[in-house]
Amino acid sequence: MDDAIALARDRMLTYQLLSSLYLKEVTADLLALMGREPSLQSGKLGEYISGLPAADLEEARVDAASDFAALFLGMSADPVAPYESVYTSPEHLLMQDARDEVLAAYRQEGLGYAGADNLPEDHIGTEFEFMAKLCEAEVAALEAGDAAEAERLRDVQRSFIREHLAVWVPQFCDDVEARARTLFYGGLAEVTRQLVASEADWAE
C-alpha cells in the first residue's frame, strides 16, 4: 500500500512538473534546482544540466525562454502547437473534437478550466495537470483506505492515457525535439516521450 501511495505521489509530482514546464517558461530557480538533481543526468536533459553549474543562470533562463517562445508561443516560422486538437484533427486546427472530449473528461471528474489566459483546454500542460490531479486524488483515496475509489481513478487515468496522451504526445515530442534550439527543450521532449511510453505500457 505504501508503495502504491509512493508511486501515485511520484506520478503526481512528475505530471505536475511537466505540466508547468509546458505551460510556462522555466525559472532560474528551477534551473538551479535541476543542477543539483543527480538522477536527471541521462539523455539530452542530462547533458543540458551538466552544463548548468558553469553557465550564467540568467543567460540560460533567457535562452530557454526564447526557445519556449519559438516553440510554443508561435514566434517562429515552424512553431509546435501544444494542443491535442492540432495533432488529432485531420486539418490540424485548434478547438476540434479532441478538445471537446478532454473537456468532458475534466468535467466528469469535477474539474473546470481555470486558466488565467484564454487558451484551449487540450493544451499539453492542462492534460498533464489533469493526470496530476487524478494522481493526487488517488493518493488521497489510498490514504483514506478507499481502494475502490483508487482503482476507479486508476481506470480513469488509464483511459485518458490510452485515448489521449498515447495518441498524440509521441508525435508532439518528435516535433519539439526536431525544432528545439536548446538542449533543455530537446531534453524535455525526450523525457516526456519516455514518460508517456512507460505510462502507455501500464495503461494497456
Binding site: 505521489r9 509530482l13 512528475t14 505530471y15 512538473l17 511537466l18 534546482l33 535541476m34 536527471l40 523525457v191
Partner: peptide, 9 residues
C-alpha cells in the same frame, strides 16, 4: 524511472 522528475517536481 520517475525518481528524478518526481524529486524535481
Amino acid at each position: 524511472f520517475m525518481a528524478g522528475t518526481a524529486a524535481l517536481g
